[in-house]
Amino acid sequence: MPIYDYQCTPCKLQFEAHQSINSPAPDCPKCGSIAEKVILSAPAVHGNMARGRDLAMRSLQPKPDQAHGHPPGCGCGHH
């Protein structure tokens, strides 16, 4: 079952809840109010997904043997 991050609107407590995607928002463990705000964050990446992400990020980086392509003094740091 997935873990979701919530923040209680009245008391601002941040907490995690194990629940299915279709479940209603949980009650705040501190004040009992219904948590209305879901905090969205990037998912953790492990295993083959991490390797694929790393390769994709590297493919976007300029290769050492590629020409700079900008005029001298452009300020981008590549020479």
Rank of each mutant, 00 (worst) to 15 (best):
P2H: 05
P2W: 04
I3W: 08
Y4M: 12
D5S: 13
D5P: 04
D5L: 15
Y6W: 15
Y6T: 06
Y6K: 01
Q7K: 15
Q7A: 13
Q7G: 11
T9W: 11
C11D: 07
K12A: 15
K12W: 13
L13Q: 12
Q14T: 13
E16H: 12
E16L: 09
A17W: 09
A17D: 12
H18G: 04
H18W: 02
Q19K: 15
Q19L: 09
S20R: 14
S20V: 11
I21V: 13
I21P: 00
N22K: 13
S23G: 01
S23L: 10
P24A: 15
P24F: 09
A25F: 14
A25H: 15
P26H: 07
D27L: 14
C28D: 11
C28K: 04
P29Q: 08
K30D: 12
K30E: 15
C31D: 15
G32A: 05
S33E: 14
I34H: 10
I34E: 14
I34K: 15
E36T: 13
V38L: 11
V38P: 00
V38G: 02
L40N: 07
L40C: 04
S41F: 06
A42N: 05
A42G: 00
P43A: 04
P43G: 04
P43V: 00
A44W: 04
V45H: 07
H46N: 08
H46E: 12
G47L: 01
N48R: 08
M49I: 03
A50Y: 08
A50P: 01
A50T: 01
R51K: 10
R51I: 15
R51H: 06
R53W: 03
R53G: 06
R53K: 15
D54E: 10
D54H: 04
A56P: 00
M57D: 14
M57F: 06
R58T: 02
R58V: 02
S59G: 14
S59I: 08
L60V: 05
Q61E: 11
K63I: 01
K63F: 07
K63Y: 06
P64R: 08
P64V: 07
P64K: 09
D65K: 07
D65Y: 07
Q66R: 05
Q66S: 14
Q66C: 03
A67I: 05
H68L: 01
G69N: 08
G69C: 03
H70Q: 12
H70N: 06
P71Q: 07
P71S: 11
P71W: 00
P71N: 07
G73T: 03
G75I: 00
G75S: 01
G75C: 00
C76F: 03
G77Q: 03
G77W: 00
G77P: 04
H79I: 06
H79K: 06
H79W: 02
H79G: 09
